[in-house]
Amino acid sequence: MFDHLPTKRRNILRALVAGALTAFVAPFAYAIGKFLSFQGTIGGSNTAKLSAADLTPDSPSKLVEIEGEPVIVVREADNSIRAFTATCTHLGCIVSYRPQMPGFYCKCHGGKYDVNGINVPGTRPPSPLTELVVNEQADDLTVSLTPKAKSLS
């Protein structure tokens, strides 16, 4: 467009145009990036409620969903009720509770975790399951995706 101008002025003008175009496009690119990178599920609940009475010695564990995440709630041998993320840290399968192990087992590639959700060395999972906060009000349990602080576990 600026072919008729001397080289120096032409370069300055071209740089100005390029700068202006970038400044114009940048906010739109930012907004679209923000819009598309949002995470969340519509109508997803951020807690799961269940009754402690449902966790019996015969079926000591239950899978619940929080914001699309599977969470496993277990009554362990010492009668304590604990909740862990049920997503296997290996490749994302859903783990199950095995009282006889005792601990968590992943069918997909034979991954194992102990009762504290710590991955058993020698099996595939590279890291432990995250323990979550369980709120006990008599028999009513409320689980959220809040990790239980390390010091407490």
Binding site: A31, I32, K34, F35, F38, G40
Partner: peptide, 9 residues
């Protein structure tokens, strides 16, 4: 209400 810039878009 939730998605950034969603209302404008």
């Amino acid at each position: 209400t939730k998605v950034p810039f969603g209302a404008v878009i």
